[in-house]
Structure formats: structure tokens, C-alpha cells
Design a protein around this nucleic acid. Structure first.
Length: 292
DNA sequence: AGCACGGCTCAGGCGATCCT
DNA sequence: AGGATCGCCTGAGCCGTGCT
């Protein structure tokens, strides 16, 4: 970790809001928490430049125009657009000199902030446009209100709102929800086929042949719409079925493995453990102990 | 829509350990 | 003690993805 560096110009109106928070030990170990939050109506010359700050920053443009430099790329932000960045990395943002930038912003950390950031950063761009019905500005306002009148509930409620906020931001990173009406025609019957034949030896080649599609095309379209590759989808089906049998029967692990189409027990156990984080037997025991 | 290729997952064997 | 379960290792080839 490098040394924290920051330079900035405090050019914002008197009506602007800036709230600094010091999270409790509980918040640091359990919650998502706010480090700083604000609503700036910037004045000409406003900018911030920093690096090596252990924080994630979300800036939402209410009005005007701003600029961001991050990871060697320049971005322009207009109303309804936000950025989400890791403040460990060098960054610079500033208002347009004529079309002054109005922003809601929040520095956050804690819980699985890093994971959310990494999911977001998988997308092509660190700047995203929100649609007009986006709840994000409202969530940021709620957070500002919460932070301005602190009481014993503030940290837990802030964490709850931050989860909503991060979820909304992540959803903008995904393509529109898969619509089976516009998905390739072969997909619904293929899913149906897989649901019925998951315990058979299903190869991509065979699937492609059965549904008369190119296997490379099949693989891509499947993942685009379903979110898993065909192989992953089949394995998940098998694991889910195995879980059912582990819960509701006394069949041995070997029998269950065979029933879901995996003849090699140790291979089945490996698959199960990497996905469920428990061995089949441990899963069965945990389930039976958990029952009243 | 199709091709090429590298990564990595799967399959299977075998020995160790656990449990009844 | 013996069957059941698990862990480790290795080679094969399947699959995802970048590119056209």
C-alpha cells in the first residue's frame, strides 16, 4: 500500500453539505459504512486529486457537467451519470468551468465493498448512466439525512441503504434482464431438455447437434441469457438434485453421485465441496442437526 | 456464425482417514 | 476390521473466449 496523497480546491457553495463519519468497531467489522458523504453545488475551479486512500467513492451527477480521470482514461459526466471508483488508485475529478457540476457523493467502505467494486469494474466503463426512475439519487439523499442526524440506528440503517445503493449500481452494469421472448428459439427447449436429462453424459457437441445450432454460438448465447455456461448449468442441476437426496434419503454418497450422473465418487465430492463448501456427508449431517 | 487455441475443469486412480 | 468417505494427483480433452 502506498502513501496517501491528496490535493483539492474547496470551491463549493455555502448551501453545500459535507459530513464526515467515524465508524464504530462494530460498523468496521460488520457493516457497510459511510466515511464521508455530501451534496456539492460546485463553483469554478473545484477539483480533487488523490491516491492510496482506503475507500470507495461513488459520485452521482445531479446537474451540470464534470470530468473524471481514472485508470488512464478520461470521462465526462452529465446529469444522471455516476462513477464508482477505488480510491487506492490515482484519480482526478473536476467541474466544468461553465456548466457547474452538482453532485451527491459518498465515500464508503466495509463488509464486501471490495467485492461489489470488483463486480462493477468488470464492466467496460467506470461511468454509468442511470435511467430516470433510478432510486440512486433518492438513496443518496436518504443517506445524507441519516448521517446528518445520527443516533444509535444510523450505522445499521446506513449499511442497509448502502446495500440497496450498491445493488442498484451493480444492476446497471448488467445487460437488460434476459427476456425469453427475444432469446434464441433453441434455448427454452434446451433448458427443458437439460432439466430432464441432467444425469446423462451431455456434451456440448451433442447438444449442438440435437438442437441444430453451432456449438460456439450455442455456448455464447446460453451464457448471455442464462448467466452460466451449459456445463456449469448441468453441474448446478446435479448438485441441487444431490442436495435433495442427501436431505431426504439415506442413500450413500456413491449412490447419489451415480444417480446425478457422476460415476466417480471422489470427483463428485470434489465438485460438491467446491460449490457448497461442505462435503456431501457434512451437508447431510448439518441438515439433519438443523432440523427441529 | 465459425475458427483456433490455451486454460482449466473433469475424470479416474489410489492411498489415507473416518466411522460404525 | 471393513466399508464409506475424503483428499491428492495427473493427464486428457472440453470449453470459453478473442478474433475474424
Amino acid at each position: 500500500m502506498g502513501t496517501f496523497k491528496e490535493s483539492f480546491a474547496c470551491h463549493w457553495t455555502d448551501q453545500s453539505v459535507r459530513l464526515i463519519s467515524t465508524p464504530s468497531r462494530t460498523a468496521r467489522s460488520t457493516f457497510f459504512y459511510v466515511q464521508e458523504i455530501g451534496h456539492f453545488q460546485t463553483l469554478p475551479g473545484y477539483f480533487t486529486e488523490r491516491e492510496h486512500l482506503n475507500s470507495y467513492l461513488i459520485v452521482y451527477t445531479v446537474a451540470g457537467k464534470g470530468y473524471l480521470n481514472y485508470r488512464n482514461r478520461s470521462h465526462t459526466l452529465g446529469p444522471g451519470q455516476l462513477f464508482f471508483i477505488d480510491c487506492e488508485e490515482r484519480h482526478h475529478y473536476a467541474t466544468d468551468q461553465h456548466n457547474l457540476w452538482e453532485i451527491y457523493w459518498v465515500h464508503i467502505n466495509g463488509a464486501t465493498s471490495r467485492g461489489y467494486y470488483e463486480q462493477f469494474a468488470k464492466g467496460s466503463d467506470h461511468v454509468r448512466s442511470m435511467n430516470v426512475q433510478s432510486p440512486i439519487p433518492d438513496l443518496l439523499l436518504q443517506l445524507i439525512r441519516l448521517q446528518s442526524q445520527k443516533d444509535y440506528r444510523t450505522e445499521a440503517l446506513s449499511s442497509k441503504i448502502l446495500v440497496d445503493l450498491l445493488t442498484e449500481i451493480l444492476l446497471t452494469a448488467y445487460k437488460p434482464y434476459p427476456d425469453f421472448d427475444v432469446s434464441p428459439a433453441f434455448l427454452p427447449p434446451m433448458i427443458d431438455y437439460l432439466d430432464k436429462h441432467y444425469n446423462e453424459d451431455i456434451r456440448l457437441d451433442r447438444l449442438a447437434e440435437l438442437f441444430a445450432v453451432n456449438k460456439y454460438h450455442l455456448s455464447k448465447e446460453f451464457k448471455k441469457v442464462i448467466g452460466y455456461t451449459p456445463k456449469e448449468y448441468i453441474i448446478n442441476l446435479r448438485i441441487n438434485k444431490a442436495k435433495e437426496w442427501l436431505k431426504h434419503t439415506n442413500a450413500s454418497v456413491e449412490e447419489i453421485a451415480g444417480s446425478v450422473g457422476i460415476d466417480n465418487v471422489s470427483h463428485f465430492i470434489n465438485l460438491f465441496k467446491t460449490r457448497v463448501e461442505l462435503t456431501p456427508l457434512a451437508f447431510r449431517k448439518k441438515w439433519h442437526t438443523a432440523r427441529p
